[in-house]
Write a protein that binds this DNA or RNA. Structure first.
Lengths: 149, 149
DNA sequence: ATAAATGATTGAAAAACTCGATGATTGAGA
DNA sequence: TCTCAATCATCGAGTTTTTCAATCATTTAT
């Protein structure tokens, strides 16, 4: 006898739906900053690494085709939130490095983003939430010892 | 001092990335059945309710614009996996009801889908997984006492 | 009976995705 | 040193997805 469960308990379904909801709410929350979830994520990845992050790696971290990042970075660069600097060690690479203005905006955006998360997950036990982060991190970054903080 | 965390511990980011990964892997797993994650989800929602589910509710449950469902249901209907039956109580509604063939295919697809989930989350404690389902369910179906099974 | 609301459908425009091609650069090996 | 294959960012074309307004049929409220 099969343990038949409804689609509404399917992890893929739940993940996708929850992701959609959070992304949409985040897009609204970031609209006043003229950021979308996408551009905020890219900016944030740049802010995480003061020395800059290869554009290609931003694409990989976002699960996007590298060609999709061109427009996103173009816009951030035009707004002077990031700069494309040639990697001195490998001039094929463009290192995306956040400007001071970029870091400032990112901090504001991070607060708004956190408010959205709070709205959806504020009522659950923080330890359980950390555990969920842990599980998702394992799924998203397999074979990695990276500690999320 | 702010508790500054990297984007990689942001729940929205993790949810989105994990969802993408699972959806893509599920699409591949379902390709031999000529189903995509989208059509499988719609079919599954129909299978969950023997008396049929209003097309509009399928759209709502999937977070899609109703117009996007037309093509999805069209295809399932052409393949005789579901039928659009007029709701006797409100003839504006189309009730999507799964056929026997639809239920059979859905069962096969569910197994393949579960294998994908197993691949990404098989190594984590089942209780923690249930807890994650619970948390995501709360976020996706707020103000609902629905018990996921 | 009329008017407002709701559901499915269509079509058009915008956004996102995919993929192959290109030029610049690097690294390996003859 | 001189190819040659590989890698990176970018571009462009073609496809798919999303968004949204309009339409028709039906229902509900007035």
């Amino acid at each position: 006898m099969e343990n038949q469960r409804s689609i509404e308990s399917d992890l893929g379904y739940l993940l996708t739906r929850a992701g959609m909801l959070v992304v949409r709410a985040t897009n609204e929350a970031l609209a006043p900053l003229e950021l979308r979830t996408r551009s905020y994520t890219a900016l944030s990845l740049a802010c995480d690494r003061p020395d800059g992050v290869p554009q290609r790696q931003v694409a990989a971290d976002m699960g996007l085709d590298p060609s999709q990042l061109v427009a996103i970075i173009d816009e951030l660069e035009q707004r002077k939130l990031v700069a494309r600097t040639p990697d001195p060690n490998d001039r094929r690479n463009k290192l995306i490095v956040a400007t001071a203005a970029g870091r400032d905006l990112c901090a504001v955006a991070a607060r708004r983003s956190a408010e959205v998360t709070e709205r959806y997950f504020g009522s659950v036990d923080p330890a359980a939430l950390d555990q969920m982060r842990e599980m998702l991190g394992q799924a998203v970054f397999p074979d990695t010892d990276r500690i999320l903080r």
